[in-house]
Design a protein around this nucleic acid. Sequence first.
DNA 1: CGTTTTTTTGAGAGCGGTCAATGATGGTGG
DNA 2: CCACCATCATTGACCGCTCTCAAAAAAACG
Lengths: 219, 219
Amino acid sequence: MLTMNSAAQPVPASTRAPGRLVALTASLELPGFTMSFDRDEEIFGEGESADFIYRVVSGAVRISRLIDDGRRQISAFYLPGDVFGLEMDEAHSASAEAVTDCEIALVKRVAVERAAAQDPATAGTLWSLTSAQLRFAQDHLVVLGRRSATEKVGRFLLSMAERACSGGAVSLAMSRLDIADYLGLTIETVSRTFTQLERQGAIGLNGARNIVIRNPAAL
Amino acid sequence: MLTMNSAAQPVPASTRAPGRLVALTASLELPGFTMSFDRDEEIFGEGESADFIYRVVSGAVRISRLIDDGRRQISAFYLPGDVFGLEMDEAHSASAEAVTDCEIALVKRVAVERAAAQDPATAGTLWSLTSAQLRFAQDHLVVLGRRSATEKVGRFLLSMAERACSGGAVSLAMSRLDIADYLGLTIETVSRTFTQLERQGAIGLNGARNIVIRNPAAL
DNA sequence: CGTTTTTTTGAGAGCGGTCAATGATGGTGG
DNA sequence: CCACCATCATTGACCGCTCTCAAAAAAACG
């Protein structure tokens, strides 16, 4: 039986820098199942009823909202171990799509709620997870508010490196367009900022999606 | 005995427009007490241990985070009836200050957690409230992402009008600086946008802080 | 190897920021 | 009640950053 247990180890709170990403993972031992999604496939759509809670097993997921003028705002990327779809509402307020081919574990929301009603620890975990997402969103607000493109991209790279837990090397799962829609920039500005950071020696680029952070202080 | 009961009626979910503010209110019947704060007084500070959960009785509150360069990002304004300080963390990740003189109801966090452990409904309320704040933050993300100053100010005014529930007339509790720090703009741009919207006939201005929304569609 | 998608680079324009000064508002004390 | 002062808001001129439009280069895919 599959569970919502998180394989990834959460980042200890004591090591968290303010304004940085927080762990969106936690253990939720409940029966569920997994589904596979192709790249760019929709996991759930804006307005759909929220019947499940999700956890990334492999791959990456983006949460986005379409704006009237055709643009997109991505509010978060979820990586293996992260739980998403927690918003306690009758309907999803945003859509979730696969950034890459990915495997997603699903648990029925009613099962989670039933478990929470019987077990205070589970209820606390749900609150805690939602709270972590809230803090995450507030961190993101700080980045989106009046900051330069260089600062936005720098913060993004640092947070991705922190979440990847692979030292300075980061393999970006998402395209320049995804990054742009996440940071409130254009793909051109994102691209220009990458090359600018490389020329400054702050990062190294091996192809477009393999980044090495050489000088974190410069970001 | 004072309670955390909300006097303000929550906006029904069915009437909520996507991208708009949601109700941050709910009933939490727990013993607590109230405190008064002067304008600009700190209610809690970034890094302080989070021992209480708060509800606005009267006045207005802002949640802000200081950025290294001296600037400020305001993540939310709380109005009478709103509950804040829910982030389930050992320490506050942002500070709360009184926008105007205000009265705040406080409940010890441990009391809330104890109640939640015994009563699933209370635990659900906590999750629901935190979830509403999360959705609120995501709405704000959409506004802060690539949008023009006019759109940002327009969205802000519409959301304030919606929360005030006083028709088209809005009495803004916060300064231009607060609005600027909330929207990621400067006070000059906010001011210019106000006058521009007035000249277009979208809003009416009676002094700097009394707004009448004349043409919501133009925002 | 050809096609499609993604990324990079360039040149020009517009929006919002910065700096600076003026005008309005509100509170205090004479 | 009014003069005074501090704070807040408005307006203007100019500049820089990022967007836009456009094209070339690189990478991914069958």
